[in-house]
Write a protein that binds this DNA or RNA. Sequence first.
RNA 1: UGGGGCGUCGCCAAGCGGUAAGGCACGUGGCUCUGGACCACGCAUUCCAAGGUUCGAAUCCUUGCGCCCCAGCCA
Length: 570
Amino acid sequence: MSSTAPAKPVDFIREIINDDLESGRHTKVVTRFPPEPNGFLHIGHAKSICLNFGLALEYRDRLPGSATRCHLRFDDTDPTKEETLYEEAIKEDVRWLGFEWDGLYHASDYFEKMFEYAEHLIMSGKAYVCSLTDPEVKEYRGSLTTPGRNSPYRERSVDENVDLFRRMRKGEFKDGEHTLRARIDMASANMKMRDPLLYRIRHATHHMTGDAWCIYPMYDYAHPISDAIEGITHSICTLEFENNRELYDWVIDNLMEYAKFPSRPRQYEFARLSLNYTVMSKRRLLELVEGKHVSGWDDPRLPTIAGMRRRGYTPESIRAFCASVGVAKANSTVDMAQLEFCIRDDLNQKAPRVLAVLKPLKVVIENFPEADVEELDASYWPHDVPREGSRKVPFCREIYIEQDDFMLEPPKDFYRLAPGQEVRLRYAYTITCTDVVKDSAGNVTELRCRYDPETLGRNPEGRKVKGTIHWVSARHAVDAEIRLYDRLLSEEAPPTGKDSDFLEAINPNALTVVTGCKLERSLGEAKPGERFQFERQGYFVVDVKDSKPGALVFNRIVTMKDSWARAQKK
RNA sequence: UGGGGCGUCGCCAAGCGGUAAGGCACGUGGCUCUGGACCACGCAUUCCAAGGUUCGAAUCCUUGCGCCCCAGCCA
C-alpha cells in the first residue's frame, strides 16, 4: 500500500474484510443493501447504504473484475406490508444518494429454492410442521428465564411433515393453521433458537409473485439463503440482529452441503444511526405521515431521504455525514449539529450568494434621486471561495432591509442600523439612519436614511463601519414565499412513553411560512432545485413541487451559523 | 434470575501492553463589505468502578456497576 494514500477510515468491518482478503478466506467482497419495501428510506438507511455500496466501491481497485459487488435486494417476505410504490421510492433514493447496484434482486426471487431447501430440512429431520395456534406457540416458547417446552407436533414423521408442508403450499389450510418450524432447542438460552418459525401461511397477494404462494418464509430463514445464493461474503446488518446470527449460521450450516452455495456468508452487526431532535423509527415516521402531522414522506421536516432531498440537502453532504459518524458497535445518538455542519460545509462551496429580505422594512434614501437606478456589481462568491461569476444588483432610492437589522434602542454591540447609526449595505454604500417613521400604534414602518456616495467599494474616511446588512431594491424586488424549516422536535429525545407521546415533542416552529419576502431581481429566474445562500440568513432551495415562475417558493435548508444570535441567548 | 452486545471529552470516534488521534459542539483571539467562511490557540494527567498482573495498562486478569437487544405466524 502506498504511504501517500489518504487515510481512509478503517472501522471494524473494514478490518474484518482486510483480514479475510489477506488470509484468503475470501477473494471477493460482495455486500448487499436489503430494505423491506414497506416504507421510505431515512438517514439511518443512508448510513447502511454508504457502508455497503461504499465497501464495494472501495475494494474495486484492489480486486479484479467483478470481484466486488453490492446488490440491492428487496426483503419482500411479508406480502401484507410491502408495496411496489415503496420499491420505486427506495430505488430513486439510492440512486439519488449516488449509488448504482450491481444487480437488483428480491427475496421472492428465491421462493422456489427456499421451498426446496425447506423440504430438505424436513427430510433431514431439521424442520417440522407445527399446528400450535399463535398463542400456544407463544406459551410453549417459555420466557427469558424459563426454558420452553417442545411442541406436541415436534415428533411428526418425515412423511407426514412433507405431506403437510406440500399441502400448506397448495392452500389447503387457513392462515395460522400450521407453520413450518426449525427443530433446534426449545431450552436454548437464545430465544431465537427455540424452534423458530420458518414459514407461515398467508393467503395474500404478493406485489411480485401475485397469488403464486400462500406460504411465505420468515426473515430469519429467507435472509441467509438469499445472501448465500447471491454469493454475499459480508452480510452487514444492525445490532438488534446479533441474537439472530446464531440462527443465520444454523440455516447456512444445515443447507450448505445440499445447496452448494457459492459463498459462506457471515453476518456482522454495527450500530444503527440515531439523531437527536428527530425520529427515525418506521413506526413513528409512518404515524407522522398517516396522521397528517407532516405533508407526506417527502416533508422537508422529516429525516427521510425524500424529505431531505426536498429540503435541499445534497447527496454529497449526506455521504460526508455518514463518513463522519463512523461505523462501530456502541449504541449512539449523533448530534443534529453534525449533520447541519455537513450541509453548510458542502454548500459553502456550491451555493451562489444572493440577497433576499425575509421580513421587509422599507428604507427611503433621502439624498438619492428618485429617478435614478445604479447597477452595482455583486459577486456570486465571497473572496474565499475560488469561483467566478457575478450579477448586477439595482440600487434605488427605496429599498428593503431586514426588520431584524434595525433596532430603536440597540445594545452597544449591535452593529447594524439604528437611529443615527451607520451601516454598510452589502455591495453598495453605507447609510445612516436619520429618521424613523411609525404608525399610530408605534410600530416602525419606514426608515429615512442618507447614503454616503463616497463609500462604494471603499471605507468612509475617519469612521469605522462595522456592520454590513443585506437589502433589496424596492422597485426591482421579486416576491416569494419562503418556508423556514427547523428541527422536527423541540427536545433532543422524544418522550419514551407508549403510543403517540412523541407527537408532543414536535417543534411548532419546525415550519414557519413567510410570505411577501423580497428577493433581488436575479432570483426571478431561479429554477426548481437550485440552491442559494441568502447572505447572512442561510441556505435555501427552490421548492421542486410548489414553486412556479412568478410565484416562487423557497425552502430553508439550514441557517447560517450565527454567533450573534448565540450570544443574544446568553 | 437466562442469553447476546456495549461502556474513551457535551456528541460521534481512533486506540489492539509503551505512556489519550480526529471531527462536531463550545470558548478566546485574528481577519473580513456575510456577526458566514478562513486562520491561530484552548478544550479527557485520564479512559464506568474497584482490585490484580507488569518496569509500564484505556488496552491483560478478576469482581462489580450501568446501558442496549431477545419471549411478532414483523424485518
